[in-house]
Design a protein around this nucleic acid. Sequence first.
DNA 1: TTTAAGGTATCACGTTGCGTTAGAGTCAAC
DNA 2: GTTGACTCTAACGCAACGTGATACCTTAAA
Lengths: 248, 248
Amino acid sequence: MKVKEVADLVGISVRTLHHYDEIGLLTPDETTEAGYRLYSDDNLETLQQILFFKELGFPLKKIKEIINSPSFDRREALKLHRKMLVEKRTRLDKMISTIDKTIEHKKGAIQMTNKEKFEGFDFSQNPYEKEARERWGDEAVDRSNAKLKSMTEEERKALGDRMNEIYRNLADLRDTSPESEEAQAAIKEWYDFLNSDSGNHYSLEAFKGLGQMYVDDERFTKNIDQFGEGLSRFMRDAMAVYADKNKE
Amino acid sequence: MKVKEVADLVGISVRTLHHYDEIGLLTPDETTEAGYRLYSDDNLETLQQILFFKELGFPLKKIKEIINSPSFDRREALKLHRKMLVEKRTRLDKMISTIDKTIEHKKGAIQMTNKEKFEGFDFSQNPYEKEARERWGDEAVDRSNAKLKSMTEEERKALGDRMNEIYRNLADLRDTSPESEEAQAAIKEWYDFLNSDSGNHYSLEAFKGLGQMYVDDERFTKNIDQFGEGLSRFMRDAMAVYADKNKE
DNA sequence: TTTAAGGTATCACGTTGCGTTAGAGTCAAC
DNA sequence: GTTGACTCTAACGCAACGTGATACCTTAAA
């Protein structure tokens, strides 16, 4: 086999084979008259061994020593390789679980404080209260505020957890189209949540307006986007689509 | 935290941290008046991310771009890490199975040629024949040779396969004690094989002597040790133990 | 209070494992 | 017989540190 065939077969560059020849790590058994390198099956097997050792992080110099050593027992070497690969896999598994933990931790950390959580709903603390009253009527706003204030801490927490859940779900979908079925299903959950649990009733128009506020008011934007960049915009769009579609 | 504390904690060198500072990849949040680098918790977290990317084979330049990018979303990055680690694990699994296959293949390939296989038994080809005759008597040696010569190719092959099987079994045990139960059981198989299939009868004393030859005659040694370094010595010891134990 | 041990800092050159042209020859096919 | 894909050697380049050399900082023990 010629250089490129070998290179393509095992997924390395021609230059690498040249290099291995240069440093005497893998000299092909034969060469043509023109000087072309011809690798034998045996060469290929040695190459495999070399790549295994490389994968394990051995420097080429050490690899050369190893495979040239008279005490080098291919079978033993293979067993050793196997063992080290398994160890590497174990390390990888650990890294993966570390990541999983970190992700979980981030999920936990992203739980907003209660204050932050309800900033978007307690209109009495919101600079947009006046606009909200004008847009959706006094009763709705008052009902919403009253309900929030009357809740116990535990109730607030449960509510907050449910909100986080919905947000996360939406965040995962934010790269899809706002009109998509999943997006609309997730947004419906949000709509239902607002209308049931939080005690006030949002008209479809108010719902659409709320979505717009998610983008216009940076306090909403900042909080929501903690769950994923662009989530606020995505929610606005999805909420608008939802409102328009269910009006008809 | 100072450089060395960080270095020891995450398992990299101080020089590496210096380097990362040099190229602006990770500049510590603070420095003392004396110019000592002081790493914050935040720095540590960034370092973790850097090391993750490095583990995945990204060049430092790319890593710098990535973590400095405004669109860099830690959560998304973590998910990506996870995905790539899982892919890496898959590749590792493939490599491990490749090794397993290679080992199996080697097991097959180690089947000696018929000539080699029987060098240890056809005393007519063995320089030790004279000694063998003196030691175990003419009849035994003649019987052995006659039997071997009268076999068909197929019979030889079957016999050879059985031999290989026993050898492999012994090779796997060669790190245990020769007196161990498994070792003695495996050696008994060998003794029985010699006495039944190969047609000649070995006295316990002859068996012990044969074992010694495995070490003394390099032609035996070389062939046997193909199944694993030190197997010949192990067999000699186990055969001696077997002979002595069954004499009483 | 000195002093020894161990950290830390900044150059600055060395090393590994190839990548990357550059210039020239080779081979198979049309 | 001329493309086009491959091959060669040679030489420089580069990333990611390793490895001193030399000098300053810190701290606990003498």
